[in-house]
């Protein structure tokens, strides 16, 4: 038996897999096989990024949020307002969107780490609605229910203009999403990420072993908020518009649904969920826009009833079962 160095498990788990590289290459090749749907493809990437930010908090950290759109919308309005007031350079605008949302997340985290259960649900819901109503009331600044008009974004790096086909937008969203996934990948495989998962599994025990969880939860809430703001800023810049729905309860609910659909607590759960959800919405709401919510509700009910671990979790369980059966067959031979 070989001796195993401490931390070898981490290394094995955090090693880059061929599947991941293939996945990102496949996404990068989207302009080749769906050239007419690049706008949808960017929106999927943005939604995946938003779901990833929630995954860090809910999937890994086990903290429910029903108001995550607060950070998404804050990022969107930050990027949109900067551009509207003449700061049209996209990258710095995006960084600003991330920082403002992260600052809000940091401020909110002092409230959030003190609560759990129903009170946590209520406060996150309340904070989300608070910002929504605030943006609605400040119609002079935000445009109210008409949305933020006149958002002009300068060409990326001064070279690539944002066009109607969405080619620049897609590449831009792709690079940002890739960077964010790499960052979160690094975080969840770090000791910090493991302590979050420990908190999710058993908060009392984490306290008993002396882990400073309050500080760590504040940090993860801040990071998660910043990533959500990044997603919001991306949406504002690529669509050159910000509507009140960026802050709405529906968006907060949707992102939870997307994450659960794909599989929470898994790096690519949000991406898979966003892919299925956005394409599903595109197809189903084309046929019957009014009843999209019926299908959404039905999907949610069915996932909760029959596939509580989401698509990725269900797939992994299936794989384990198939492998187990194969191993059994081998043993019998």
């Amino acid at each position: 038996m070989e001796s195993i160095a401490p931390g070898a498990g981490f290394e094995r788990r955090s090693r880059l897999r061929a599947g991941e590289v293939l996945l990102w290459l496949a996404i990068a090749a989207a302009p080749l096989y769906v050239p007419g749907h690049l706008v949808l493809a960017s929106q999927i990437l943005i939604t995946a990024l938003f779901a990833l930010s929630l995954d860090l908090l809910l999937g890994y950290g086990g903290m429910i949020s029903l108001g995550h759109a607060a950070y998404f919308g804050t990022g969107a309005y930050t990027a949109g307002l900067l551009a509207q007031h003449g700061w049209s350079e996209p990258i710095s605008g995006l960084v600003a969107a991330m920082l403002v949302a992260a600052a809000l997340g940091f401020a909110a985290s002092f409230v959030i780490v003190r609560l759990s259960g129903v009170a946590l649900l209520m406060v996150t819901l309340g904070l989300g609605l608070l910002l929504f109503e605030l943006a609605n009331a400040l119609a002079d600044i935000t445009g109210g229910s008409d949305g933020l008009q006149g958002v002009e974004i300068a060409p990326l790096l001064g070279l690539f203009g944002f066009d109607m086909v969405g080619r620049t937008g897609f590449v831009y969203a792709y690079l940002v999403a890739l960077g964010a996934f790499a960052l979160v990948r690094r975080i969840v495989h770090s000791p910090f990420g493991l302590s979050l998962q420990g908190y999710r599994e058993n908060p009392a025990r984490m306290a008993q072993i002396g882990a400073p969880m309050a500080a760590r939860l504040r940090l993860v809430n801040t990071i998660s908020a910043g990533l959500a703001g990044l997603a919001g800023g991306l949406l504002a810049q690529t669509t050159q518009f910000v509507g009140l729905d960026a802050l709405g309860f529906e968006r907060s609910a949707e992102v939870v649904i997307i994450l659960i659909l794909g599989g929470g607590g898994r790096l690519y759960g949000g991406l898979v969920g966003a892919l299925v959800f956005m394409i599903g919405r595109d197809v189903l709401s084309e046929a019957n826009p009014e009843y999209w919510y019926f299908w959404l509700g039905l999907i949610l009910v069915l996932v909760v009833l029959f596939m509580p671990q989401g698509i990725l979790g269900g797939g992994a369980a299936l794989l384990v079962r198939l492998r187990g059966r194969a191993a059994l067959g081998e043993a019998a031979r």
Binding site: V256, F294, G297
Partner: peptide
């Protein structure tokens, strides 16, 4: 867990809203 309650009942609400629209 409570997350399951939240998801399941939000799903039911969405269905009820669409049903009422219908």
């Amino acid at each position: 867990p409570q997350l399951t309650h939240v998801l399941f009942t939000i799903g039911l609400t969405f269905m009820a809203v669409a049903g009422a629209t219908y």
